[in-house]
Structure formats: structure tokens, C-alpha cells
Design a protein around this nucleic acid. Structure first.
Length: 281
DNA sequence: CATCAATCCTGATCGC
DNA sequence: TGCGATCAGGATTGAT
């Protein structure tokens, strides 16, 4: 399930395949999921960026001057969300949903469960994408500061709060569980103290930083799992401490990891290391 | 406004 | 071994 580290890895991997290329055509059969992607035809990719779990191809007129190095101005953004199972491939297959035809070859978007979405918009016009419009700071940027403690002090259950993308961007189910374990916080803890918020801040940065370095997490053997465009796996799944490890001993204290459901998501935590602090009213 | 549940999807896995 | 039921979950929408 692509979260920030997987999307960032995807960005880095497909950048050399798309940068400077002209998109000739975008083929698909689901206009509702891939809105206005026909507008990309005839435009050149001048850069690839990422915001949270969203990938953006910067598009400019094909005849615009070819700047070297820095990203040149663009007048359209081709936004891609990988959903649960989306990913780019060098060859088409059974689950190819979108084909990007370029002047330097084709790139295929595979998405078995069809949760992925695309849209072409004017830069920054995210009215139709409320989560992107209200996106919190990048966890690995200087915009993410410990002053998020002020927000955390007012927050409801901490895991759903993280998953909302508002306090910080790019955290999904896997990295929420891993960050909360590292911070020693119960998934349903509310109204974090300053100390708790500080621990969570550092845990999110640590987990996300290491996961990006590892190329993200690749889980399971099935087709629907995250892979890089060349079929390579990320490595961070080997560093998971709690996700997918219900019943196994906590790496820190040996207590069996508990599996539960929080906010309709499979949730893993150590009852010993991550106790729920009762509100003292 | 905040919280919660339903919805979209289909391959993998589980239970009998 | 087969087959139906269940699980997985990010973002959005609708309900409370």
C-alpha cells in the first residue's frame, strides 16, 4: 500500500523515464478515475514532484524552450495517486489501467484493485481533491516542526488523526503503526501531552526517513503489492516492528503484539510499550 | 465542526 | 481440492 516512502521511490524511479519527454497520448477506459488526462497530450514533462502520497508530473507546452537543470515553468499538473495497488510498469499486463504514450516509449500504470486516481489540473488547483488541498507539512521538511504539539494537544484518537493527512502528510496505515510503536503511544490515545507529541514527531521523521532510504515496503507475494517499475522490492518491510506481526513478541519487551481495528484499519501495537493513558479529567 | 460508517475494487487468504 | 466468505485499506461521501 503506497504511502509516502513508496510514492517517493516511484517518483525517483520514473523521473529518468519521463523528464523531458513529450506525452503523445494517455489511453484508458475510465474517465471518472482519470480526469482530464487527455489534456496531457502534446505536452512535455518538465519535472516530477510529490506531495504526501500524491505524485505530480509538471507539464509545459512541448515547444517551450528546453531548460537544462532546474524545473522550468509549467502550466498543468498531472496528478497521480497510486491508491492501494497502483504502480508504473515498463510492460503492459492484465491489470494495466492507463498507458502513457511518450516520444521515448510507453509507460504503463498497473492497478489491480482500481483504487488509483489521476487528474490533470492547473498548478495548485486542488478544489476537487480536498485531502490534497488541506495537506499537512511534509514529514521530512523543515515545515514539519515540533509545534505540531499544539495541534496534538487538541486531537482525538492519534492514529486516525495521523491518517487524516492534516497534521503531517504521507503517513498511512503501516507507517502510523510503526511510528506509534516507536513513540510508545497507544493508537487511540487522545490529547497528547507535549512530551508525547515530541516523541511522535521524532518517531514519524525517523520512520519515514529510514523507509525512504530503504525504497519503501513491499509486502506479500501477490500482484497487488507494491513494487517498483522494474519489479524490484523495497526493503523496509524487514524493519517493521509491529505491522503485520500480531501475536509475535514485541522487539522491545517481548510482550505479544496485539492486533485490533481502529478507524476501520488493521492496527498493531504492543500493550506493554504503548499503554493507553487515561484522561485524568 | 467532529466523528463515524459506507463505498469503491479484486486478488489473496481463510474456513469448511 | 473446491468454493464461498472474508480481508486488505486511501480517499471521499454521506450520515449522525
Amino acid at each position: 500500500m503506497p504511502e509516502l516512502p513508496e510514492v517517493e521511490t516511484t517518483r525517483r524511479k520514473i523521473e529518468p523515464l519521463l523528464l523531458g519527454r513529450t506525452i503523445l497520448e494517455v489511453q484508458h477506459d475510465a474517465p471518472h478515475k482519470y480526469r482530464d488526462t487527455h489534456l496531457a497530450a502534446g505536452r512535455r514533462v518538465t519535472g516530477l514532484s510529490r506531495r504526501g502520497k500524491y505524485l505530480m508530473l509538471h507539464l509545459a507546452a512541448a515547444e517551450a524552450a528546453h531548460d537544462q537543470g532546474a524545473d522550468s515553468p509549467h502550466d498543468l499538473e498531472f496528478i497521480v495517486h497510486l491508491g492501494m495497488t497502483g504502480g508504473f510498469r515498463l510492460e503492459g499486463g492484465k491489470h494495466t489501467r492507463v498507458t502513457l504514450r511518450t516520444d521515448a516509449g510507453d509507460l504503463y500504470f498497473d492497478d489491480p484493485r482500481r483504487f488509483g486516481k489521476m487528474a490533470v489540473v492547473r498548478p495548485g488547483e486542488y478544489a476537487g481533491m480536498p485531502t490534497l488541498a488541506a495537506m499537512g507539512p511534509e514529514p521530512l521538511s523543515d515545515d514539519f516542526r515540533e509545534d505540531f504539539a499544539a495541534l496534538a494537544a487538541q486531537a482525538g484518537a492519534v492514529k486516525p488523526w495521523l491518517l487524516s493527512q492534516k497534521p503531517v502528510s504521507g503517513v498511512g496505515n503501516i507507517y502510523a503503526d510503526e511510528s506509534l510503536w516507536l513513540a510508545g503511544l497507544h493508537p487511540t490515545q487522545t490529547r497528547l501531552t507535549r512530551d508525547e507529541a515530541g516523541r511522535l514527531y521524532h518517531a514519524v521523521r525517523d520512520v519515514m526517513g529510514r523507509a525512504v532510504e530503504a525504497g519503501g515496503s513491499s509486502l506479500g507475494k501477490g500482484e497487488g503489492n507494491y513494487r517498483q517499475h522494474d519489479g524490484l522490492s523495497g526493503l523496509f518491510q524487514h524493519a517493521h516492528n509491529v505491522y503485520g506481526k500480531g501475536g509475535e513478541p514485541c522487539p522491545r519487551c517481548g510482550t505479544p503484539i496485539e492486533k485490533s481495528v481502529v478507524a476501520q484499519r488493521g492496527t498493531h501495537h504492543c500493550p506493554q510499550c504503548q499503554p493507553l493513558r487515561r484522561e485524568t479529567v
